[in-house]
Design a protein around this nucleic acid. Structure first.
Lengths: 255, 255
DNA sequence: GTCTATAACGAGATAGAC
DNA sequence: GTCTATCTCGTTATAGAC
């Protein structure tokens, strides 16, 4: 009997996966707004009512796709974070790690443009994301926070002071998502998070067509600069090398 | 006869505007993917075939909406550029201008979220933007370039040196969109352009829900920092005030 | 010439009876 | 689960009003 239950469960998992695969195919062809349970069923040789045993509504299927996409890009970011030189000896290593995470996100987005559009593009009309999407949606952001936390612990951060105007928001943000970090770094991290996806979106959505050509290089340099705005200490590239550089970095204190 | 032609022309303009208005209403309700000529005609009390006198196809109607949206936000940005303190005496004025332009774009986006989604969100499936959208699409970017050009001319820019890897791209970009500026500033401007819209998109598309609260302040500070990455000289806020600051800025040369 | 209305096509979605 | 009758869509051809 447990064998039967096991087989049933396996079948259910397989069918669920097939449904999501087909739905993803339609996502690419027609867009999220036109995702239809019936079309998915037809393509799978099923009858539409049968799908309701797996997903109670079109919106729930959409939610599953969204969660999968967030988890997919989150996994990629976490993996890049794990892989990229956890060698904390050189301050530069943390900036390199930041860049590695950003490049992993970009690579995923270019490889899965439609899933990317689903989660970072225009909201689907008439659909409101349920609570379950919140945790997966924050995975990439949490990796960015983790990179900065490591750097803060091991080599310190170089940050401009917090303006009074932003202090309450900064303290709330820091308490929420990075209790170990100084409040001053929280707003820059959130901003860098949004800006990173601005770079990726412009590339994926075609805004860079006929504008940027050496996109990988361009992206890498841009996110490296972004890493500096969150306090990561970089190579001499930032300040005009030889003009400031050492002075600029020495003057920055661990906070 | 010229009176008749005038009247006809006026009527044509009015009907065209009514069609676009109704189409925009549908854009908000159903999304660009589901924009339908028949529904627009029905709502206007016309017959679908009559619309073809005004727009040769559904895609051309979409194109008109896209061009209008780009022009609308472009106009707002240009107006902010014109209005914001053309007083070039203080270096800070240019950074303030940069922030004013960015805030104008953000305000427009928050006021017209669906038109914003149309031009900066996911591409519409099956639709490819024709050439006519290119010029309107670049208006905001050109305003950003203009701000930097003014600053370069009047007070100079503070920029990190160009890495060898990025030099060819930078020179191509500079030649294309800002012949008066040093190549080193071209990639940062393009990056800042994308990053600005990253900030706006995250806010408009709801990514900041339950994360950022003081959004106007947060945005202003983020784009101010963005302005510094394109070489605009700012107030003392950047370098930890008193720690480096003066040294950091003096070391940066006009390029 | 300029416009609107009628009718139709082929493709696809949808609701409900069976 | 299946089938059918009835919707929607974009688009075109055609005829007639101004």
């Amino acid at each position: 009997m447990s064998a039967i239950r096991g087989a049933r469960e396996r079948a259910r998992i397989e069918v669920t996966a097939a449904i999501k695969d087909e739905a993803r195919r339609q996502l690419a062809a027609e867009g999220a707004a036109k995702l239809s349970l019936r079309a998915v069923a037809r393509e799978l040789g099923m009858v539409s009512s049968a799908l309701y045993r797996y997903f109670p509504s079109r919106d729930e299927l959409l939610t599953a796709l969204i969660v999968d996409a967030y988890d997919s890009v989150g996994e990629v970011a976490e993996s890049a974070h794990r892989t990229a030189a956890p060698d904390g000896s050189a301050p530069v290593a943390h900036l390199a790690r930041w860049v590695a995470v950003a490049c992993a996100v970009r690579d995923w987005a270019l490889a899965h443009p439609h899933e990317y559009a689903l989660i970072y593009g225009s909201p689907v009309p008439g659909y409101t994301a349920p609570q379950v999407t919140i945790a997966p949606a924050s995975r990439v952001g949490l990796v960015l926070v983790a990179v900065v936390e490591d750097a803060h612990r091991e080599v310190g951060l170089a940050l401009p002071p917090l303006t009074e105007e932003l202090r309450p928001e900064a303290e709330r943000l820091a308490a929420d998502l990075a209790p170990g970090l100084p409040p001053a770094v929280a707003p820059p991290i959130v901003a860098a998070w949004a800006q990173l996806f601005g770079l990726v979106s412009f590339e994926v959505f075609g805004q860079f067509d006929r504008v940027v050509e050496a996109r990988a290089t361009f992206f890498r340099q841009a996110v490296e600069e972004l890493g500096r705005t969150v306090g990561l200490l970089g190579a001499a590239a930032r300040g005009a090398a030889g003009q400031r550089g050492a002075a600029g970095q020495d003057g920055r204190a661990r906070r």
